[in-house]
Design a protein around this nucleic acid. Structure first.
Lengths: 194, 194, 194, 194
DNA sequence: CATGAATGAGCATTCATTCAT
DNA sequence: CATGAATGAATGCTCATTCAT
């Protein structure tokens, strides 16, 4: 008795995640160029041939992973598009972000590798990303202004550098880096309630 | 008559730099794994075969570039091993560092890519690197203590994160990032003269 | 639907023999070092890439052929491990051997090439080979003693030299060498019935 | 002061022998195809370039060695073209031959490798070689006839097989083979004085 | 005569992709 | 939907050969 269409759809979604999960695990340890389709297939527990039923090419698989990684990280910042309501909300968001870095080293390793690739530039400059980023910076600007910072634009850059810097250090060597020192510093400086 | 040994040495030194320069240019744009020896040879204007007269393997070439990149960056920090004498000296060092980032984007792009590679971990943990890093942190610690900071160790981490963060942003998209905002921030906070 | 495991096994066994057959044909004419994988693939009627699905490397292919050649030749001598029962049995064995040389020039060409390779020495000195050889010499010794030869050990060396010598001559130029003269000589001298 | 033409000629002859000697040493251990010109040059203590002033190509070098090896071995048999005068002369020739095998394993290793190569066939079938061989077989025939052998042609084949067989065994593993057993056997059978 | 830097064709090997089953 | 045998283009690397010095 053949599977229903519904069942097939479920299988397809599961299989796709299975494959992407395997690929992410491998890509976080090695460069995509150094990970073969055969290796990914084995890690995912499927045949090489089946891979091509889910992704037209290795490039498309890489792109899918890039997209879902970016999406995952964007989601952290967005919190469903709501405005930053005050120091507590800001604190929550920062905590969410740092916790995510700590709990998803693989994702962030991929993310940091990605932003260094020249083919990512166009991607990061795409309207979608720019929109999210622009909106987020606006939120931060308003929040920091409300908090009494003279040059909120400058502070945004500083916070961004701090987060990027400590994240890259952390994913490079999680066992040697105390990421919370920077987290607390950011909260101390930018989430003080007056 | 055959070339003198002197002449051959000169040729070999020049050629080697020619090849390493070409490789650095390409490695800064793409992952080494995605850059073929043939491409490097063409960029360097030499034949594929000659590459192997200067580097036993592609791996050795990559390693050479890793080493020279690390050496170059270490040199920025060391300033002939002298202690940090005061705010002016600190300012000079920070300027030297930021100027180097601005003028050597390729080198720093490679550097940031390198620290994400797992095979680099052992390298960065090697005594040589750890020595330099340890010595440098000691210098910074003493300087920041003299400057009146309560928790110099914390400040070192923050400055490190700031520098790493803004550098990675800058080398990713130099035309969009105003690296000097962070430079001035660091100087404002840590090089104030009392 | 995918092929059954059984079907795949059959395919792999056939293909492997196809490749080894082609390689033996070529190796019997030229030194393995002078025969490229591309040539073997063409002779076998498969793609270069497929070769590596059956043999991890060219070296492994050469080794496989060495092994199967040695095995084939050992088998000639063993005759199911039975003792040499008398002149008739001895005659049969000698005939079997000479017939095999005549009908398998390629195999013997490879065999003679092999015993000259220094890397074969350790192989020929391996316990497995030494066991078979030792057992066989013992059998011969007993037989020749029973036949009334004063110094059977000496005769074994002479017979061995005769066989090796005429074989190498025969496989070098089958059309010019009358191998049966030596066959008859051996039978005349060592299989006379009293 | 430039070298005289005489001196140059001497140098050239010496250099050539130096190179051929080095090549023979290496060829006796490894297949020519596995020995690079660079290796031969280093072993001979000359530059790669110089090799080409003495031999137009690697092939020509191999051919030169083939020729000189064959010449050297032919010389053993010929003894200045004199007829075989009797058992003592025959004994001397056999001894000369066996001693040469024992003292020139490298040469004989090359020789045995050579006769298995298909490109050697035409060489061995060349008039020059055939002449020498023919003449030598005639000598042997006459000698053996005089010694009272019924079928000298058959004996020639047997002696040839014995010598080839024991030689190939000896050069394969000199430390395990007692070549003199065959030498004595040949002398016993074919150099008995009546 | 002598050197070794330089070349490029050729080789072993890998791997994304296809396709018969 | 699922498999893995098969392909062939591309890659790292070697090596005979050339040639400026």
């Amino acid at each position: 008795m053949p599977r229903t269409e519904e069942q097939n759809k479920t299988i397809r979604v599961e299989r796709k995640q299975q494959i992407m999960g395997a690929a992410m695990r491998l890509f976080s340890e090695k460069n995509p160029a150094e990970v073969s389709i055969a290796t990914i297939a084995k890690e995912a527990g499927v045949s090489k041939g089946l891979m091509y039923s889910y992704f037209k090419s290795k490039d498309e698989l890489e792109l899918s992973i890039m997209n879902s990684t970016i999406d995952e990280i964007m989601e952290i910042f967005l919190v469903s598009n709501k405005v930053i309501e005050g120091p507590d909300d800001f604190t929550n968001r920062i905590n969410r972000l740092f916790d995510h870095v700590i709990n998803n080293v693989a994702t962030w390793k991929i993310y940091t590798q990605l932003i260094l690739q020249s083919k990512m530039k166009e991607f990061l400059m795409s309207p979608k990303i720019q929109d999210v980023m622009g909106w987020y910076q606006e939120q931060l600007f308003n929040y920091l202004q409300k908090q009494g910072f003279e040059d909120p634009a400058k502070e945004i850059i500083i916070v961004g550098a701090l987060i990027d810097g400590i994240s890259i250090q952390y994913v490079s060597a999680p066992e040697f880096i105390d990421i919370n020192i920077v987290r607390n510093h950011i909260l101390d400086v930018y989430a003080k309630k007056y």
